[in-house]
């Protein structure tokens, strides 16, 4: 598929339909896939394979003032982020050529490590089996056991609103994405508080979640703005530290496409996506099913009102919009 993509990108650039492409290159380790812009001279270094879990759409924002059109490679999940960025006028869709790329789920090397596989030197895949070469020999692993968590509750393999699609996709979703949220909801307030205190206390405020999040696209974040009244509080004591994540979840509520990048990039392994997913679950229950980024120009339920809207308390009392 990688070669087909390169060929198509070159054709598009040569035809004058676009000037550059936003995709992935190999990073420090063989499995690192880092977002990068290529032009026709270096497009040969473009990588697309089972390690390209990163969502690159956010990098388009900084590209907007530039002349010409940018091709962006989007997996089905990334297409939602692109649409949401266009809805919020952060990306001008007319300056983007969205090239959908097939996806059969992306591999999480961390997961292999937690299986006890150390000293990984190479990974090859054949069908549903991964062959992991290590310093200590070869290991076979079922591909589905090594997929990123976000792939296991994938929104589906349809690319939303892209200009064309290259390559085939395979369903990877295996479960109910709200399962863990429901578990948290079932806890007592004290248990839930303990759960989040435990998780969020690991935060080192590296800001990776904020920097990768396509919904966190503010030119100046409130946490960097001394006048906002929250910037220093977030560092003042250990609970204010937790507030960073709670405030962030509120800021992206209704806009989060559930791309799962926050949890994927967290070096401390905090399941940050659960905060967002709880918001999504609540929105679905209060106002009916809603998927941010399904199309450009959507009005998300929290910033939209219709004459038939019920009071949230009323909906809540009767147990959600679908009850």
């Amino acid at each position: 598929m990688q070669e087909m993509i390169k060929e198509r990108v070159l054709t598009l650039i040569n035809e004058g339909a676009a000037d550059r492409v936003l995709a992935w290159e190999t990073g420090e380790f063989f499995y690192d896939r880092t977002p990068k812009f290529f032009d026709k001279n270096n497009v040969n270094d473009l990588k697309y394979d089972s390690f390209c879990g990163a969502n690159v759409t956010k990098y388009l924002i900084a590209e907007m003032p530039k002349e010409g059109k940018t091709i962006v490679l989007v997996k089905p999940c990334d297409s939602y982020s692109l649409n949401q960025l266009c809805t919020e006028h952060r990306v001008n869709r007319e300056k983007v050529y969205a090239l959908g790329v097939g996806c059969r789920g992306k591999i999480d090397v961390e997961k292999l490590r937690t299986m006890g596989i150390k000293g990984i030197t190479a990974i090859t895949e054949e069908g549903d089996t991964l062959t992991v070469s290590t310093l200590y020999g070869e290991k076979k692993v079922a591909r589905k056991d090594a997929l990123l968590d976000k792939c296991l509750c994938c929104k589906g393999k349809e690319h939303k609103g892209v200009d064309e699609v290259i390559g085939d996709s395979e369903e990877t979703s295996v479960g109910d994405k709200f399962e863990m949220v429901a578990k948290l909801e079932a806890m007592t307030p004290d248990e839930r508080f303990e759960f989040w205190r435990g998780e969020l206390s690991k935060c080192i405020r590296c800001n990776a979640c904020r920097n990768v999040c396509p919904a966190c696209s503010c030119i100046k974040c409130v946490f960097d703005n001394p006048k906002s009244g929250v910037d220093n509080k977030a560092a003042a004591d250990d609970f204010e530290e937790n507030m960073f994540h709670i405030i962030r979840a509120y800021h992206v509520a209704g806009r989060c496409t559930d791309c799962g990048e926050c949890s994927r990039v967290c070096p401390q392994g905090i399941p940050l996506h659960l905060l967002n997913r709880k918001m999504i679950k609540d929105i679905n229950e209060l106002y009916g099913d809603y998927q941010a980024g399904a199309e450009i120009g959507q009005r998300h339920p929290l910033t939209d009102y219709t004459l038939s809207d019920d009071e949230p308390s009323v909906v809540h009392e009767r147990g959600g919009a679908n009850a």
């Binding site: 809805t87 919020e88 006028h89 696209s217 030119i219 009005r299 910033t303 939209d304 009102y305």
Partner: peptide, 12 residues
Amino acid sequence: ALCNGCSQCERV
């Protein structure tokens, strides 16, 4: 200086 032009305010 802070506005992103995201249109959320217009909608509410």
